[in-house]
Design a protein around this nucleic acid. Structure first.
Lengths: 121, 121
DNA sequence: TCTCTATGGTTTCTGTTGGAAACCAGGTGC
DNA sequence: GCACCTGGTTTCCAACAGAAACCATAGAGA
């Protein structure tokens, strides 16, 4: 057995991790940082719709999990740069696949939704 | 251009889709149905900690998006079977990768968290 | 008959969360 | 002094998640 964890188990610590990465904003941040490092306000601008609070919270959580790194430069005004760690980088393949699956299969989903709404109405 | 969608854009419909699949319970359900079809109460038992309400809601949403199918058999008591559609099946590779990344990298995350908590304390 | 089981849900209530906006600290230019 | 840049934190309210109760149907057992 490679590891004793079971994602289906209530008490398994992997659940807490899944809960964190199975989050719209965390996924978008990881996907964006997979392209290149970025600063706080750049993330805020590029990931449209994210609030400062949620961005700040999510970055902090991702940093605590060792998925991203935070570097502050004593410039004026202060510059803070976020980047993927090696651990986080391994994640981005899966994350990227998920994010871009949504882009690639949007049409099929639209059709399914329309069909469902017609059936159920 | 293969498609005109941009996951980083606020108004892009892919955002709604990402919001739905970037959900702890939806991911676990999809991952579980990737193994084999299952009935309502089987899902409820196997995916520990999910409530009936959330399971019901999530299944309904996934069905509307065309990712899973629902079949009701007029047995007594009624039997309802959920399974992946072809569209949903394409998703499970990415979903599975995400869910099992959490299992595989739990140790590294634990270490990162401990290190972070020590630094920040 | 009356109760207990099972099925697959819906409803109700309450605590936690998410997002919008305001606020904050430090420093520079006008 | 005043505005403005950075990267945040705080405040407030509406929306959501989860726990528990409830529902309809029907078969088994006492």
């Amino acid at each position: 057995m490679k590891h004793a964890y079971d994602i289906y188990s209530d008490r398994c610590p992997t659940r807490a991790v899944l809960d964190r990465i199975a989050d719209k904003w965390a996924l978008l941040i990881l996907d964006r940082l997979g392209e290149d490092r970025a600063r706080f306000n750049a993330l805020k601008r590029e990931i449209e719709g994210i609030s400062q609070k949620v961005l700040s919270q999510t970055l902090k959580a991702l940093e605590r999990d060792g998925l991203i790194s935070r570097k502050a430069f004593p410039t004026v005004p202060v510059t803070v740069e976020y980047a993927l760690t090696p651990l986080g980088h391994k994640l981005t393949e899966a994350v990227s696949a998920l994010a871009h699956w949504a882009e690639a299969n949007m049409d099929a989903i639209h059709k399914a939704q329309a069909a469902y709404d017609q059936r159920v109405r």
